[in-house]
Amino acid sequence: MEKKIVKIKVNGDWHEALVKQNMTLLEFIREELNLTGTKEACDEGECGACTLIMDGRSVNSCLVPIMEANGKEITTIEGLAKGQDLHPLQKAFIENGALQCGFCTPGMIMSSKALLDNNPKPTEAEIKGAIAGNICRCTGYNMIVEAVKMAAEPKS
């Protein structure tokens, strides 16, 4: 397999690497950059655990060939908090009990972030729609939907 050089901006920093062309963005993030917050749960684009944000859109990183990510800007779960300051979604997930085993949580938060970045005041149906591609086996979703609502309408 031929190797190529890619340049990808991840959480604010440009990374250059020589990679096999059949690598996925998920492999790049987890194996090359060691950013293990992004999870692999199906490798088929069916569960959303590997969701991250690429150029403002949420994507299943297991389905993104690495060359497609070349030159693009990526945000992973590790890029959300500013130092010790959590993103409102992270705070809301903790406060609202919107996570249990935590394996879907990074993907769930990234899908929710993509939603709120583009639609700061979503309806309940829009929230459900935004996370419908992220499977959670633990919570039954209602507490996640409430957490996203809470993050969208922070207590004054």
């Binding site: 950013l35 917050g37 992004t38 999870k39 992973t76 959300l80 959590l86 992270q90 903790i94 935590g102």
Partner: peptide
């Protein structure tokens, strides 16, 4: 009470 491991889980730091 929020889970004692919640902070690690929302920041991607929890190690599986």
């Amino acid at each position: 009470t929020p889970k004692v491991d919640a902070l690690d889980k929302v920041t991607g730091k929890a190690v599986y």
